[in-house]
């Protein structure tokens, strides 16, 4: 192990390295936008986006909260649904064969088509938004869980069986804990789609939300505010992602720690 490798494992560097990357990206954007002949309506520099966003912060926050609510509620429903479906598919191979194509099929319908359809069917309210968030995010979680169950050590399952454990005990003591790393992988993938899905749903028709905000700004050619909205959405996703990583560390320390040791 070299000193540099060891150094990057320290918490400070874990934060500093990505911040540095973001700094480089923002800096390049700023310099390019200022020095090229591109107008502000096409690509305003970062400083203008930040200024405009700050000036309009009241409206930005007011529109971020509904989006956040859609994301959180949709995601919680998605996790519950994913657990139920995955358990069903795990205990019944027949259900697995029957339901899986339908689940995969549900993932092939483009959001562009689905979002307006949901507005037609369910209106402009809260429900079509959480439905879309759930639909988009449950799939990686289900796949993560199913793969996780399958990763159970055969000897551990056999051992419990020789001890007289029934299917339920084996599931609770071996299969479910074995699936936790896969579950959290699915959770991390799912959460990155969640904000985009909510914004898409709002785009198709909503009263408020980041999607509505961005759409409005775009309609009045306020590119700076469009980008401000996008930055808020990106930050939101980053924060939610970091939260899932934190929960994973707390929930399955045996997995995270053993991986850090073996690296």
């Amino acid at each position: 192990m070299t000193i540099a490798e060891g150094g990057f494992r320290q918490p400070l560097n874990r934060v500093v390295a990505p911040l540095l990357m973001i700094g480089v990206f923002v800096g390049a954007w700023e310099i390019y936008a200022r020095n090229s002949s591109i107008g502000d309506t096409v690509l305003p520099p970062f400083s203008r986006v930040a200024q405009a966003g700050w000036a309009d912060r009241q409206s930005l926050v007011a529109n971020t909260l509904p989006t956040l609510r859609e994301v959180l509620v949709g995601f919680v429903i998605s996790v519950i649904f994913a657990f139920l479906i995955s358990i069903l598919l795990d205990v019944s191979p027949r259900a697995n064969r029957a339901v899986m194509p339908l689940l995969i099929g549900s993932q092939t319908i483009p959001l562009v088509v689905l979002a307006p359809l949901f507005v037609i069917w369910f209106g402009f309210g809260f429900f079509p938004k959480i439905l879309l968030v759930t639909l988009v995010t449950f799939f990686p979680i289900v796949v993560g869980l199913i793969d996780g169950y399958a990763s159970s050590e055969r000897d551990s399952v056999t051992l419990l069986r020789t001890m007289g454990a029934g299917t339920l005990t084996v599931f609770g003591l071996v299969r479910l804990p074995s699936a936790m790393p896969g579950f959290f992988t699915g959770l991390r993938i799912g959460i990155t789609y969640a904000v985009v899905a909510a914004i898409f749903a709002e785009y198709a028709g909503a009263v408020n939300g980041l999607g509505v905000y961005i759409q409005g700004a775009s309609g009045s050619f306020r590119t700076d505010l469009v980008l401000a909205g996008v930055l808020v959405a990106a930050t939101l996703t980053l924060v939610l992602y970091a939260l899932t990583v934190l929960v994973q560390r707390l929930a399955i320390p045996w997995y995270t720690q053993s991986r850090e040791v073996s690296q």
Binding site: D155, L173, I252
Partner: peptide, 8 residues
């Protein structure tokens, strides 16, 4: 043969 300890 494999100790089959539960890692968690």
């Amino acid at each position: 043969q494999n100790d089959a300890l539960l890692p968690w």
